[in-house]
Write a protein that binds this DNA or RNA. Structure first.
Lengths: 245, 245
DNA sequence: AAGAAAAAAATGTGATATCATTTTTGCGAC
DNA sequence: GTCGCAAAAATGATATCACATTTTTTTCTT
């Protein structure tokens, strides 16, 4: 079945990398980096797909050099794997890795929220409220890409209240690793419903209550996609066991 | 004064990047990456030094291309900054950043220790004991570079007991950011003495006591260089305030 | 001597060429 | 058909080249 699908699916149309506003990039390397990063985050490149530097370069109409540099950066952030042979791919999620990434995300984000708390001002709470309102709208209109981006913006703004937000790049690396899988889940599982825990986060911030904030952040992460994601991974494991290839 | 020093100090001898066994590298890019990484970690390149891609390339006897890629990776790991103008440098430590990095390190490493605990076996405890013995020897003989490397090896081995050690790359990024400053401290502050908290860590592991392990890890990090580092940063801040340039 | 303008050198970036290695394709034997 | 093998194509890695921009040095003016 898989082979049949691969038969008429050439490399060209195996993925569709969304374009990107070309304005805000200074160098081609950065453009390639941002565009590939965005594509990975949005799940535009199926995990497991074989990629090549030259293939991506010609797809993006660039020379291999800047693409290669973009790939080095993405591989440093664990957004993609550089396999020993001459292949690149977006890592395929595994149950054990998923659990570790979620736990790591909780540890990092609760820590960052706690470290940001002393710097929370009314202005920041207001900004966060506005982002949350935009999220409500995105949910209502089922704009999932926007929802993801707004969610990241919300968290980034919160942790970035700390004047030395050293943890943000690490958190973004985790987001980047979870992104492709999350999008797979959202795409495949129809019965996905969103529980908005940001209201809890905002309440804790308004009260300047650090303990409540930590709990709210943890709930937010857990309710995100964790349950549905676990379910999908269990099903895949079961399928692999019965219908071994 | 600084200018006078810079006068007879050409770019060539502003740093001395240690050589590296050329055997275990497959590509030139990786060699450059490992060698620069090692040099940064060892404090061979003074934070704040102006660097150029071509300068490093000619210093390492390589073409600019692989050096560029190595630098992209290092900049992704926040081991060095790519300044907008055409300059690279190792970031200079600041008090606020130092505090955040230490707190982040504690959060990440206690989390990782806890997540590794269920996978700790007698074999691993034995390996860790051997590394700790080697550290005692290194301290006695005042081999500071070896001590750093063995310390990292100890922690890596511990957290790596977890079959999905997703946190290790993030922790290594923090080490890389703290490394240059730590070496400055060790070099400048003579009255630095080492408190070995690894014995506590090992005791907690033998008892399979997660709570004690977390405390021991936190103590280990705190006792490392934190107090002395804080002191140096305070002194620098004071000096900058009085003798403003 | 000091500052401004001009010339020279250096730098980052990206495309291209080359080479060794790997992957894919084509083709004949069974 | 399918397996094996050789030819062909593709790929990653790196050096080099070209170009625009920036930095540094030199020269000229006052």
């Amino acid at each position: 079945m898989q082979q049949k699908a691969a038969h008429f699916m050439t490399k060209k149309d195996a993925f569709n990398i969304p374009e990107l506003p070309t304005g805000d990039t200074e160098t081609v390397q950065e453009y390639a980096y941002l565009r590939l990063r965005n594509a990975i985050m949005l799940g535009s490149i199926e995990p497991g797909t074989n990629l090549t530097i030259r293939g991506l370069a010609s797809y993006l109409n660039l020379s291999p050099t800047p693409v290669r540099e973009a790939i080095r950066r993405l591989s440093s952030e664990h957004a993609l794997e550089v396999l020993g042979n001459r292949r690149l791919r977006i890592p395929v999620m595994e149950a054990g890795r998923f659990e570790e990434l979620i736990q790591l995300r909780i540890a990092l984000e609760t820590h960052s929220a706690e470290r940001a708390m002393p710097y929370i001002s009314d202005v920041i709470v207001q900004e966060l409220t506005e982002i949350d309102d935009a999220m409500d709208l995105a949910i209502a209109e089922y704009r999932m890409e926007d929802l993801t981006q707004l969610n990241h913006k919300f968290h980034r703004r919160l942790y970035g209240a700390n004047p030395y937000p050293q943890s943000i790049p690490l958190i973004e690396s985790i987001w980047l690793q979870l992104g492709p899988f999350q999008r797979q889940v959202v795409r495949e599982v129809k019965a996905y419903y969103h529980i908005d825990r940001h209201k809890e986060v905002l309440a804790a911030l308004r009260e300047r209550n650090a303990t409540a904030l930590i709990v709210a952040i943890e709930n937010d992460i857990r309710d995100g996609i964790v349950r549905t994601g676990r379910e999908k991974l269990k099903q895949e494991a079961r399928a692999a066991q019965t219908g071994q290839s």
